[in-house]
Design a protein around this nucleic acid. Structure first.
Lengths: 201, 201
DNA sequence: TCATGACTGATACTGAGTGTCAGACTAGGA
DNA sequence: TCCTAGTCTGACACTCAGTATCAGTCATGA
């Protein structure tokens, strides 16, 4: 799923990439994303601008490449869960999202910092949403192929996946606003309650 | 709500903007969004590059400025509906979305063309999602201030609005794929069914 | 030891978007 | 009618993201 580095070349490349991202991230937090240029980053990292650009296609990717595997994490989680057959879509999506946040939350403080930077930088928000949109079709397919499929329209699955992915960012935003204090499982439950409670009428 | 042109200056500016957008749109459809430069557009429209850039801050806005009022349309619609008090959030959001699509669908063929262009141009998708994210806080506030507020967490309103806005694009995508044939009201119903049907368990 | 292929830095280029400036135009008051 | 203040325009210069090319260097594996 993730770009598992195999071969010495790949390992080295992976390590360099991580180091460049680390240096760059400090700069972004210090000065602000838009204020930092590739020339600045290259100088700070001690490489040429060309080299820096070879490791990251765009400036956004320097920050957001850590989110790349999330799509696969979610699809894999959907495929893996199967012990008790008849779970509803919402329940399955909730669990898949729990896998996703589990993957992301390794260093709490780091993730909080990243989310803060993303939140106050429109360009990063936009690019992240773009990634999210790329994940969607595969997740929808996985959800549909293992669902009871008693639901009428095919759009229903699309809508549910889209809603779930929205929840992911809402919950992460809420969580990072609490500085990583709140419990992510509870936040997910509270968010998914938007669909289970009758909501009037 | 929309930028109502008042004063001769404003009227003129509005008209020029519309004409520039029209010329540009033809080019985009003919050659592809990314292949067309501001220099091309300026030449095609018979103005200087500077002037063109003064009317539209970014290339994306040349296409997407038509969506600008949608946020206000939705908030206004939420505020306006009130005849029978106790409607649920979903029902209210559905009706507000119907106002939004009603606002957008004036020339069917034109909207279908725009949506097609947006769909096959990642940069346009991203910018449109950015606009959507800007609308959200206000819509959430409006929904909350006129809701029965029996729901527990404040995130619930956020989630419902986010989900509804996702539905907007999913439904419009579906609709434009059918070349504007399908009924938008029915599509909205089908999409919102994702929340009303129990979804297993 | 050598050949292949990858990595690097240098350089040049396109195009988006910003800022400034001087001149032309126009609305609106005297 | 004339004047003035504010607006619109084209021209120009600039920064920076992102693409592409090329020659030199270095590690790997035969």
């Amino acid at each position: 799923m993730s770009a598992a580095p195999v071969g010495t070349r790949e390992i080295g490349r992976h390590a360099v990439r991580a180091e460049l991202a680390r240096v760059a991230f400090d700069r972004f937090c210090l000065t602000g994303f838009n204020q930092v240029t590739f020339a600045d980053l290259a100088e700070a990292a001690g490489v040429s601008r060309s080299t820096f650009l070879r490791y990251f296609g765009t400036k956004e990717d320097v920050v957001l490449f850590v989110f790349d595997p999330v799509g696969d994490v979610i699809t894999d989680a959907l495929a893996a869960e199967r012990p008790d057959q008849d779970e509803g879509d919402w329940s399955r999506l909730r669990d898949a999202l729990e896998s996703a946040v589990g993957f992301l939350v390794r260093d709490v403080q780091e993730l909080v910092t990243i989310l803060g930077l993303v939140e106050r930088t429109p360009a990063l928000c936009a690019r992240l949403r773009e990634k999210q949109a790329e994940w969607r079709p595969e997740i929808v397919a996985r959800l549909q192929e293992t669902t009871s499929s008693t639901d009428g329209s095919p759009v229903v699955a699309h809508v549910r996946v889209a809603a779930a992915l929205e929840i992911l960012w809402i919950v992460l935003g809420q969580w990072s606003a609490s500085d990583g204090q709140e419990d992510l499982g509870q936040l997910l439950d509270a968010a998914f309650a938007a669909f289970s409670t009758p909501a009037g009428r």
